[in-house]
Design a protein around this nucleic acid. Structure first.
Length: 813
RNA sequence: GCCGCUGUGGUGAAACUGGCAGACGCGUCGGACUCAAAAUCCGAUGGUAGCGAUACCGUGUCGGUUCGAGUCCGACCAGCGGCACCA
């Protein structure tokens, strides 16, 4: 079959019939299947795109044949750093390169033959989209979920520019090699932490991979503990956060993070010089050093002590950079016997290490951080650590020195990017009025086209006067805009809401439509988004719900991660490794259907694996066999006595069994993304039909034809162009995708006889064919009659007979 | 370091709630068709021993639970992914 020709033919027909377009009339039968949209790159579609979109499209087509009104949109995550870097390198404007890339990708995506509803296409860099991204920002600001604060950025002192994390290589600027430093800038944040608890609780009900849920759970990082107030000798008070209040008695020191405000205040004159020096060194330490756990812990005594509220003991206060100011209270109580880090620190600085927990039937060498029995804690000894924790905190609460507290590892989402190619932040800064949101009626704040990309230290927007200089919407006085743009994750945090109402010019989406179309029924994309995109999208959904725009809590009900197709060497494909495999030559040689089918058959979808094209010819062979069978079937005479042929005879029953077994399995496997086994079952069915064809008995032509027809229907989602062509050849006038998916006739699957395995003392001995509905007595009779078994049993008594119906008999002697 | 996932023939991979390990393919070997090749079709194919029926071994390693373990439990090894001092 000329694959190229039929691909063009059927793609044209599908387009003409608008088969991919969602019909709102059938919204009550909607099935919203979403694939993560693409980043418009200059390269052609790579195998990863095919692997993500091909099998998922087959899933959608399957759902369509099952009677759903499917919605499978596609779009582009079009803002972002690569286009801007490309502009700096080549002088080609990001808008131009991006639009060109998008046009290119649209073309190749169409050639895949997927049922994308292009009507609903979304491009995040278009005004009619980012206008609503800005709307979203303003809504979050109104709701108190967007705020400004100082935060460090990576700064290259030589290029005088802010660097993204991925542009920092080993602490050096990717471009010029200068040492990157941290610099504080006032930036915008979204208050995702307000939703930490709900984001955590909501995971329970999601049909997501457990692994992904666990990653989000760890990312959110809930810890339940208490804040305990210490008083300094000076009378100043501070709090520490701890999950182990049961270890309070043996605190042997306190550590402040370098940024802790009391450090400067409490440092004694004698220690001042040393502390100042330490603080300077700590501020210089770059990210890599600070993050290294193997790095030796350092710290300095500040020359001041704190009083332990539970026993009045004075303990020294240190400043050390292993304590993070951004988590908890920025101050930590040091319990060397119960915490590895504290142990290391105490050992180094000769601080007391006193046991506080005795292990229960286990090795409790220090440091010992597990639960156990409390010791060395007057009044609490003998309690379990869990009991002691409560008792100690409760006592301190009565004295007003503690409170229960929950902390989350999750940080607020920094959305400012010191970049050009993104959605401008819709806020102006007025000397008189301060921060003023741009009125909704003035959206979008347009991204100007005429900018320069020379890397001279300022972002292109900052030096664009026409953009920066504006009037205050409140007082009319002079004001300037924010030179930063929004993180592209903001754009992708709500695109699934735009698709179903993509042309709405009045609002980002119509809540009535969205509440019916969402949540997304199946979301398919890479596992690398587990903690960023997928968490941000959940947060935005919940925030919009609380503003009354949505009536559902979670955007993606069910999630699947496709695996990664690696290079033939088993490593991730990359230009630098030179192991990239392009799909185009395969499409050229074998056709889109064959490549799709091969990707479905050769890999476990969620696993992926190294690319290897050894089996791709087998797929062509499989389709050729079907084609030959179709030709044969079309040449068979029409049987006028069709009704008279009731299926009987061994061969016919076997064929009927094969067909219905295939229907049952393929249906189940397609639904659960087990594409490799679905295709295997199709191959089995084809083999069974060939076997029937080759049998010497007289053919039941209507049955033969009917089985073949069912095979084509089952195949259609996986090899859509090919199946259409065969379907048409069988005399059908409408697209195969308007046909109903075949249904399994369970009665054809019940066999009169089954083969069961027979074990003696759990060892495989033989196989027997027995009636499928046989009882224990019947089995005993068969065993007695069987010569081989009788010889094995040799007159011994059967102590126990284990029967697994239709599978196995185990004779215990 | 912590958390998680994975480990099955020469090879890609199957195995639903513990029940005939290796479905379906690739490759290899043998055969048919052919002057020959390609294509196609048929058969064999986990390992070891044996002419053979058959026997023993076999799902990373070691142990456990069970009539029965690829599947459950414990310890370890290897590969991959996530987190990175979160008190």
């Amino acid at each position: 079959m000329d694959m190229k020709k039929i691909e063009k033919k059927w793609q044209a027909i599908w387009e003409k019939e608008k088969i991919a377009n969602f019909n709102p009339k059938n919204i009550d039968k909607k099935y919203y299947c979403l694939e993560m949209f693409s980043y418009p790159s200059a390269a052609k579609l790579h195998l990863g795109h095919w692997y993500n979109y091909g099998p998922t499209d087959s899933f959608v087509r399957y759902k369509k044949m099952k009677g759903y009104e499917t919605f499978q949109p596609m779009g582009f995550d079009a803002f972002g750093l690569p286009a801007e870097n490309y502009a700096i390198k080549t002088g080609i404007h990001p808008k131009d390169s991006t639009e060109k890339n998008i046009a290119n990708m649209e073309q190749t995506l169409r050639e895949m033959g997927a049922l994308f509803d292009w009507n609903a296409e979304v491009k995040t860099c278009n005004e009619d989209y980012y206008k609503w991204t800005q709307w979203l920002f303003l809504k979050l600001y109104e709701k108190g979920l967007a705020y400004r604060k100082e935060a460090p950025v990576n700064w290259c002192p030589s290029c005088k520019t802010v660097l993204a994390n991925e542009q920092v290589v080993n602490g050096e600027c990717e471009r010029c090699g200068a040492t990157v430093v941290k610099k504080d800038l006032t930036q915008w944040f979204f208050k995702i932490t307000d939703y930490a608890e709900e984001l955590l609780q909501g995971l329970k009900d999601l049909d997501w991979p457990e692994k992904t849920k666990l990653m989000q759970k760890n990312w959110i990082g809930k810890s339940i503990g208490a804040e305990i107030e210490f008083t300094c000798e000076s009378g100043d008070k501070f709090k520490v956060f701890t999950t182990r209040a049961d270890t309070l008695f043996v605190v042997s020191f306190i550590v402040f993070a370098p940024e802790h405000p009391l450090v400067k205040k409490l440092t004694s004159d004698g220690q001042r010089e040393e502390v100042e020096k330490y603080l300077y060194e700590a501020s210089k330490a770059n990210e890599i050093e600070r993050l290294s756990t193997t790095r030796e812990k350092t710290g300095v005594y500040i020359g001041h002590n704190a009083i332990n509220p539970i026993n009045g003991k004075a303990v020294p206060i240190y400043v050390a950079d292993y304590v993070l100011y951004s988590y908890g209270t920025g101050a930590v109580m040091g319990v060397p016997s119960g915490d590895e880090r504290d142990f290391e620190f105490a050992t180094k600085y000769n601080l007391p290490i006193v046991r506080v927990t005795k292990g229960i039937n286990c090795n409790d060498d220090l440091p010992f951080h597990e639960e156990g029995i409390i010791v060395n804690s007057k009044g609490f000894d003998g309690m379990t650590t869990q009991e002691g924790r409560k008792a100690i905190v409760n006592k301190l609460i009565q004295e007003g020195k503690a409170e229960y507290k929950i902390n989350y590892r999750l940080r607020d989402w920094l959305v400012s990017r010191q970049r050009y190619w993104g959605a401008p932040i819709p806020v102006v800064y007025c000397e008189k009025c301060g921060i003023v949101p741009v009125p909704y009626s003035e959206l979008p704040v347009r991204l100007p086209y005429d900018v320069e990309f020379t890397p001279d230290g300022e972002s292109p927007l900052a030096k664009h006067k026409g953009f920066m200089e504006t009037k205050c919407p409140v007082c009319g006085g002079p004001a300037h805009r924010d030179p930063d743009t929004l993180d592209t994750f903001v754009c992708s945090s709500w695109y699934y809401l735009r698709y179903p109402d993509a042309h709405n010019a009045k609002e980002p989406f119509n809540p009535d439509i969205i509440n019916k179309m969402l949540p997304v029924d199946k979301y398919v994309g890479g596992a690398e988004h587990a903690c960023m995109h997928l968490l941000y999208a959940r947060f935005i959904t919940k925030a919009l719900r609380d503003m009354g725009y949505l009536n559902f809590d979670e955007p993606f009900k069910s999630l699947v991660h496709q695996g990664v197709i690696l290079g033939p060497d088993g490593l991730r494909m990359s230009k630098s490794k030179g192991n990239i495999v392009a799909p185009d030559p395969y499409v050229e040689e074998y056709g889109a259907d064959v490549l799709r089918l091969y990707l479905m058959f050769g890999f476990s979808y969620t696993e992926g694996g190294p690319w290897n094209d050894d089996g791709i010819k087998a797929i062509t062979k499989f389709l050729d066999r079907i084609e030959r069978l179709a030709a044969k079937i079309n040449s068979l005479p029409v049987d006028k006595n069709a009704d008279k042929h009731a299926p009987n005879g061994k061969e016919e029953k076997a064929l009927l069994y094969a067909v219905n077994y295939a229907i049952k399995c393929v249906d189940r496997d397609m639904d659960s993304f087990s594409f490799n086994t679905a295709v295997a079952r199709l191959m089995e069915l084809l083999n069974a039909i060939y076997k029937y064809d080759g049998a010497e008995t007289e053919k039941n032509i209507p049955l033969f034809k009917d089985c073949f027809k069912k095979l084509v229907l089952l195949l259609a989602p996986c090899a859509p162009h090919f199946a259409e062509e065969i379907w048409e050849g069988l005399g059908n006038k409408t697209s195969v995708f308007y046909s109903k998916y075949p249904e399994c006739d369970e009665s054809a699957l019940t066999l009169d006889e089954v083969e069961v395995a027979v074990q003696i003392n759990s060892k495989m001995r033989t196989k027997l064919v027995v009636p499928s509905e046989i009882d224990e007595q019947g089995i005993r009779e068969i065993i007695e009659k069987d010569e081989k078994l009788a010889a094995e049993i040799n007159g011994r008594e059967i102590k126990k007979l284990i029967i697994v119906p239709k599978r196995l008999i185990n004779i215990i002697l």
